[in-house]
Each structure stands twice: as C-alpha cells, then as structure tokens.
Design a protein around this nucleic acid. Structure first.
Lengths: 226, 226
DNA sequence: CGCCATCTTGATGATCCTCAAAGGGTGTGG
DNA sequence: CCACACCCTTTGAGGATCATCAAGATGGCG
C-alpha cells in the first residue's frame, strides 16, 4: 500500500477528468494541503469539515452526485472525506492564475457559496428541533423527492454539521417520530409524515420578505450612472 | 479609524459605477431583489443578513472598506444594510451570463466564500464565550492591529451574527472584562488585555491538523493514469 | 429636563451537554 | 452455526448554559 507524503498533490494536471473510486472513510484531502484539484461527485457522498482547536469537527457540507467541492484558492480550507463509497471526477487547476476550465470552475464556485450559505442558515436555527427539521427537509428534497430521504451519514456527522451532540440528534429525531412528524424504517431511512408541521418547525424561509428590523430606506440607493 | 488595507481596490474609477453615500441603517438591497450590482465598501461598514420565518435575523457577515459583497447569481440571497454611514462603489453585472470584468468578479466570489466560511466557523463554536472570543479576535485583527478593536455594530447585530441574544452577548462581554481578558473604554471600543487566554477561549485553529476523527486513508486515493 | 434607544444586570425556566448504560446490527473466530 | 466483540444508536438522569421575563442604568437628542 502506497503512502502519500502529506503535501503531495493527489492528481497531476494530466489526470483531469479521471474518475476514481474511494472507499468509505477515505480522506480526499486535508485542510492545508495545496489546492491543486477540485472534484465532482460521480457517485456516493462526500463531506467537508474543519476542525476546531479543541478537536471537535464542524462539517461544512454534504456533497451528492453532481455536486462539486474543493475549489479553494491556494490551500484547501477544509478537509474532505468520503461518507460512503464514492466515485469522484477530479479537475486540475493550473497553479498560476485562472482555470482554463473557467465556466465550470466559476459555476462550482457559485455553488460552493450557496452550499456555505445553506450551512449558515442551518446553524442559524435556534433549537435542535428547528435545525434538524430544516436539515431533514433539505435531505428530503435532495434524496427522496420531498417525501422522505436517506441519512447515509452517521448521527455523529449530523451532529457535527448542526452543532449538536449525537445524543441530542438521536433524542430529537425520536421525539419527532413519536410526535408523528416523521417515521423511521431504519436509522438511515426516514419518511415525512406531516410536512406542514415539519416545515413550521423548521421555520422555512418563504420567499417573501419578513418583517425588516430596519426601516426600508432603499429610496436612497439608486446608483446614478451620471 | 479603521486599519484595513488588505486588498487593493477592485475597480478603477473609470470602470466602476458611481459612488454613493449611504446613511446608517440604509437597506442596500433585499434578499430576493434581482442581483444587478455588486459592491465594494469604500468607507463605513455593511452587514448582510437573512431572515428566518420566525422573524429573527442571521447576520452572515460584516464588510469593511475594501471588502466586497452582493455578488449573487440571479437574485440576492441576502439583505444588505449599512451598519454605519458608508460609501459604496457599485459595479453592474451584465444580466446575461458572465461578467466581462471577470477577474475582479471571480476574486470577489472567492472572498465571499471565505467570508461565509468564517461565519460558519464562528457559529461552530460551542459556547457563547467561545463564539465571542473568536469574534473579538477577528475584529481585533481587522480594526485594531490585533490589540483591540471597534464594535460599531450594535449588540443586537453581534447577537444575530453569533446566534445568541443581546443579553448573553452583553453578559458574556462583561464577564470577560471582569476576568481581565478584555477592557472596554466605551461599549463600542475594546482592548485585549490577555491575548493568550482569549485565544485559548476562542479555540483558535492553529494551522496544523488536529486529531483526525477518521484514520487517514489517502493511500487509496492516487488517481490512476489509466 | 424628559424621552427614547441602547446597553447592562438579575431571576427563573427551558434547552442541551455531560455522564452513564442499555439495545441493535455486523463481522470475525471458534 | 453460534458466540462474542465492536460500533452505532438510543435512552435516562443530572447539571451547565443560555433564552426569557423584568427592570434598572447610560447616553444622545429634542
């Protein structure tokens, strides 16, 4: 078995586009490694995370087939690991300056920003119930057509994503099941039984504007292109 | 006086849109508005936020002179407001497709991602003390050369940024001052008295890797040149 | 001077983390 | 094939933290 030096690039430029199977648990790259490659998930699920000094993880995102991750500037700012067995497509970044694969890279960047914002929004929920309800709705939309979904990641992953403990995650899910909001066939498979109440619990953002705290003063904001 | 010159202006006077003074409290744009313009802060401070359905805010970032914000794809995903009187330089985005001012826009995008990740990392801290310590260190680095800094935003802004209440923010800051970690001349101006303990409290990420939860299996990750 | 907004502080209760232990799979070895 | 170990999940009890309710301080401004 080959052991890569810790800062050895994972892929060279020529391998761009190559696919690779990664067994569950594989660390794809570490925070701090030189960011030479970004990835697209072909199959499986990947998580990105950062570590706090006290050792606890903050999962910053789960990435599903079609999603991209790892588009950092100089060094990876997060660690990426395979949640399940996964297949990845790597895209090399030219070290100096912009990618020639520009539109794709730009698109991946925009989506990375969206992903980060989703994470902020999840963490912004006040209670464990709210965070988990919001999380389940996100998962359901991605993996179950809105009626349910899969939780292939461990309770620990969910906890570290939402800023909770595995105990609170498990307890809260049980409570939600007991209340008839959701149901579990297995720990990794749930169905939504009462979407309305679940949505209310999550405090889902409707598209409309909600009670601005500050008076609207946009009248003062036309940028005159004089 | 803010000491923040971490980047050069992104736009020259010729290519930029007009500059505009915005009084404190101005809403620059609302979440959901068409994203026609992105901004660079020339002076003052701007905050971006999203609203949860229950009405409470999540501040996603504070932006200082030189910072950019508002580079969203179709519609703004956040609301932007002036924390203090501010001067902004607006830059129009061609509605169809990519900016021609591509490098600048790309750069702003990368920094927006960094900003979002900082926010995640702040929210990832477990306790109010940790979050506030980390927040103060960030502020100190941006506005006070690391020895102290300004808090021109209200306690409510800080609270909504860190996912706390104004009560907890105020109480925690008072406690930290009583312990000799920091000192306040005014509510909006603090000095760091014990950087070591403050840093410990914040659980600052040292650059090195910290105790991976999962065994390192990168050996399995060479992309075969098939 | 008085009003208003902001900040601070106190008391109480809900939520969540910690400590502890029991159930439920899966894989390995006997 | 079964027994056992291991890991993940679930559940319980108690305590720490933070939100809520309430009220007092501080500062700016008319």
């Amino acid at each position: 078995m080959l052991i890569l030096a810790s800062h050895e690039p994972l892929m060279s430029a020529e391998t761009s586009g190559a696919c690779r199977r990664c067994p569950r648990g594989t660390t794809l790259y570490h925070q701090g490694d030189p960011a030479t490659t970004w990835f697209e998930v072909a199959s499986g699920i990947v998580r990105t995370c950062r570590f706090h000094a006290d050792g606890h993880r903050q999962l910053t995102g789960f990435f599903y087939p079609g999603d991209t991750f790892g588009l950092d500037r100089d060094w990876y700012e997060e660690t990426a690991e395979a949640v399940t067995d996964a297949t990845l497509r790597g895209h090399a970044r030219p070290a100096g300056g912009r990618d020639d694969d520009d539109d794709n890279a730009r698109d991946a960047l925009v989506r990375a920003l969206g992903s980060a914002r989703s994470c902020i929004f999840l963490l912004g929920h006040r209670t464990a119930q709210q965070r988990l309800a919001a999380f389940l709705l996100v998962i359901a939309n991605r993996t179950g057509g809105g009626l349910g979904g899969l939780l292939p990641m461990s309770r620990a992953d969910i906890a570290d994503h939402l800023g909770l403990t595995i105990h609170t995650v498990s307890r809260t899910l049980s409570t939600m099941a007991r209340k008839g909001l959701i149901a579990f066939d297995q720990p990794s498979r749930f169905r939504i039984r009462d979407a309305v109440r679940l949505r209310d619990l999550a405090g889902e953002a409707r598209a409309e504007r909600v009670s601005p705290v500050v008076p609207d003063m946009r009248a003062g904001l036309q940028f005159a292109h004089e």
